[in-house]
Design a protein around this nucleic acid. Structure first.
Length: 425
RNA sequence: GGAGACGUCGCAUAGUCCGGCCGAGUGCACCACCCUGCUAAGGUGGAGACCCCGUAAGGGGUCCAAGGGUUCAAAUCCCUUCGUCUCCGCCA
């Protein structure tokens, strides 16, 4: 059964949970409701178990009794069985009610996370020089079309709005970016994983995506499967219902997959180019770690993201997302936004979340502790590269003639190419 | 898509036909101790997960792929789902 937040914390430190709910701008009363449901549930379980114990004893008596006494004992057992059935039903109803109540609670926000909504983030730092041009800068789509590497028109013809073709050097650029990121991840000790992009409902639910964001997700009714919007889903599900050995350190995976998002709530937003498309590729870092080390790991994920962005010559800022803008699973989230010259704004290129033990509880992922006890692990995730980076790369490194300088780290992945220019034919 | 076999406590298996003495035997692996003076063998004991009550000691409940059903009682009978394997068919 999904527990989501630690029931012991809920019971013993309800104020902590209430404070978290408040910071998220969500209902505080949910906490008391969950506690009441918990009390109710435990009473129902006790009642059922007492009756059940009685029934078990009775059953043994029936089996051991001589024939002539059986009829009477069976009659008694029948009566008992009926009562057990009722108690059992009540107990499972109470269990369901508790699960529902507790699932309405978001993860407990980490101390230091700014309170408030989407606009209440705190900028931790700005890094790199904001590019300036002595010519009129083109946006990424203009550059993409000039270079013949992005084809939105044909994307729309074949699949509809928000679909695209990456062509020629565009296709190679994406692969180069992903490959560079993968090599960095491998160097940092991540195990590469190419993940399923269709998953079952229980996995989707377990990772916390089947809540408020259900209409963001593509669903295939004929097969009862969901298309994943990030490999985080499959990466988190990878060790579902397992007991891990983390004595040699965290388990780190780098998931490479295509991602699918319906973008249901963003009609009219970012309609130009490949900033916001229904299908893109992403390399995702994912860590399973002892909860005590989760915050340190979060800092490491962020550092790896920053190192990659910086090496590609992108100007960016790091923001500490406000509590109200966190997903329900996240206890803290850092976004890195790169400067997009033609938008005169920072736009999100990566995101890294510390889900503490929230996601692991839902997915029943534990570790063996000293003394043989088990406890939930912590999970963290973070973007290491996505298709969207191409937007920042093209715009940042463009030149007056519409060609684009290839940042040094990507060149070896493009056969040594240092300038993206229109193909001659 | 059609036909069939199967899914047991880390691994391998027994048990399922004939429901209760099976929460479950055996081997291997594992842990503790003993014996042995040696990188072996032998002996004794212990090992799972989850939940409830309890300060604790301890007690109780649930779990034989998952979920339902029959029954006083289900690993064992019935149904559904998921998964694995074999054969046939199909296949960008």
């Amino acid at each position: 059964m999904a527990r989501v937040i630690d029931p012991v914390v809920l019971r013993e430190k309800p104020d902590l949970v209430k404070r978290s709910q408040r910071m998220r701008g969500e209902r505080e009363e949910c906490v008391d409701e969950a506690i009441a449901a918990d009390t109710n549930r435990r009473a129902a379980i006790s009642e059922f178990e007492t009756l059940r114990a009685e029934q078990n004893v009775c059953g043994k008596q029936v089996a051991a009794a001589p024939r002539e006494e059986r009829a009477a004992l069976v009659a008694k057992a029948q009566e008992l069985a009926a009562r057990v059935k009722v108690a059992s039903q009540r107990a499972s109803e109470a269990e369901v009610a508790f699960t529902e109540a507790v699932q309405r609670l978001g993860n407990i926000v980490i101390e230091g996370v700014p309170a408030g909504g989407e606009d209440d983030y705190v900028v931790l730092r700005e890094v790199g020089d904001i590019p300036s041009f002595d010519f009129s800068a083109r946006d990424h789509l203009a550059l993409g079309e000039l270079l013949d590497i992005i084809d939105m028109e044909r994307g729309a013809k074949v699949a509809g709005a928000r679909f695209t073709y990456l062509k020629g050097l565009g296709a190679r650029l994406e692969l180069a970016l992903m490959s560079l990121a993968l090599d960095r991840a491998i160097a940092a000790g991540f195990v590469p994983l190419i993940t399923p992009t269709l998953v079952r409902p229980d996995i989707m639910r377990g990772t916390g995506f089947l809540g408020a964001h259900t209409d963001e997700i593509y669903y295939l009714p004929a097969d009862d499967l969901y298309l994943t919007g990030t490999s985080e889903v499959a990466l988190a599900g990878y060790h579902a219902n397992e007991i891990l050995d983390l004595t040699d350190g965290p388990l780190r995976y780098a998931g490479w997959s295509t991602c699918y998002r319906r973008e249901a709530g963003s009609h009219g937003k970012d309609t130009r180019g490949i900033i916001r498309v229904h299908q893109f590729n992403k390399l995702e870092m994912f860590s399973y770690i002892d909860p005590a080390d989760a915050e340190a790991e979060h800092a490491r994920l962020l550092a790896w993201q920053e190192a990659l962005l910086a090496s590609l010559g992108l100007a960016y800022r790091v923001i500490d997302t406000a509590a109200g803008d966190l997903g329900s699973s996240a206890a803290r989230k850092f976004d890195i936004e790169a400067w997009i010259p033609t938008q005169n704004a920072y736009r999100e290129l990566t995101s890294t979340s510390n889900c503490t033990s929230f996601q692991a509880r839902r997915l029943n992922i534990r570790q063996r502790r000293e003394g043989g006890k088990t406890s939930p692990v912590a999970t963290l995730n973070g973007t290491l590269a996505t298709t969207r980076w191409i937007v920042a790369l093209l715009e940042t490194h463009q030149r007056a003639d519409g060609t684009v300088t290839v940042p040094e780290p990507l060149r070896s992945y493009l056969g040594g190419l240092d300038i993206l220019a229109p193909a001659v034919r």
